Simulated assay, not measured.
Amino acid sequence: MKDEGKRRRFPTGDLARVAVFAALIAVLGLVPGLSVFGSAVPITLQTFGVMLAGAILGRWRAALAVVVLLVLVAAGLPLLAGGRGGLAVFTLPSAGFLIGWIPGAAVTGWLVERAGRSPSFTRLLVAALVGGIGVVYLFGIPVWAMIGGLPLGTAALNSAVFLPGDLIKAVLTAIVARGTQRAYPDAVPAVHQERLRTGGGR
């Protein structure tokens, strides 16, 4: 019975979803990062993948997808924007944003799970804004200040350059997630969680 419970918690379908989104975030890294005004932290599309993972996978699967990606990066694979990889990337000013992807994806997913079986565009947007921007910045800005030798206020002000792009990513996340979840109810985290609890998950 214990083995059966474990299989239900970690079904093959879940592992496949985690792998797909880890790959998606990596693919978005093929687009070179953009450094605006000489910023030490580049603007990348990968945060869009982090938000989308949370909106479609739910909290723990999304967090696991990001963990898988970051472990591969730490192992030396050039999966971050600009072909970056290796342990050295976690010593750069952008390190806090990378680590922040994990709780950011988890919070986005948790908020979408709370939205029920048919999350609205607004709920999806709020989840992406809170998790994909608020939480990620909460980790990223202090680390940027510490590693970059900047006052916290200066690092926060510098991060404002990311906001327009991140707001667009949040809107795109809500649009893509809403369309996907209408077409495929299994892509709604609350529905998937319910099926797992009742033994109907795959």
Rank of each mutant, 00 (worst) to 15 (best):
T44R: 01
A62M: 13
E194S: 06
R84L: 14
L30A: 13
R59A: 02
G76W: 12
L80C: 06
A127C: 13
G153V: 10
L111F: 01
S159C: 05
G201R: 13
K2N: 15
A22H: 09
L150N: 06
L196Q: 14
A53H: 06
V161N: 00
G38S: 07
R182W: 15
G153F: 07
L52N: 03
A190K: 01
G85K: 05
I99G: 08
S94Q: 08
R197E: 11
A23R: 09
H192Q: 14
R178Y: 09
G38K: 07
L150W: 06
G86C: 06
T91W: 06
P78D: 11
G76T: 05
S94R: 07
V171K: 07
R61V: 02
V36Y: 02
V18M: 13
V73E: 00
L150Y: 02
G49Y: 02
G149Q: 14
L69C: 12
I56C: 04
G58N: 00
F90N: 05
V66K: 01
L80T: 11
R117A: 04
I175G: 04
A55P: 00
G179P: 11
A95H: 08
V36H: 08
G140N: 01
V89T: 05
F97Y: 15
P185V: 12
T154R: 09
V171G: 06
A19D: 03
G116E: 04
L138F: 03
G109W: 01
I175V: 15
A53S: 15
M146I: 11
G134E: 02
F121M: 14
T44Y: 04
T44D: 00
A16F: 12
I175T: 10
L157C: 09
I141D: 02
R84C: 08
F97I: 04
L172S: 06
A23G: 05
T108M: 07
V112R: 02
A74W: 04
P93L: 08
G33H: 11
V126W: 11
V50R: 01
I168P: 06
G33Q: 04
A75C: 15
V27D: 04
A55K: 02
V68Y: 11
Y184V: 13
K2Y: 14
H192P: 07
S120D: 08
R117Y: 04
A26E: 10
G179H: 12
M51D: 03
F162Y: 10
F97D: 03
P103V: 08
R8N: 14
Q46V: 00
L79I: 08
L72W: 11
G29V: 07
A128W: 00
G116S: 12
A106F: 05
F10Q: 14
A106I: 00
F21G: 07
F21C: 10
I147S: 04
R8E: 13
V135L: 00
A88Q: 06
T173S: 05
M51S: 05
M1S: 15
A22G: 13
L92E: 09
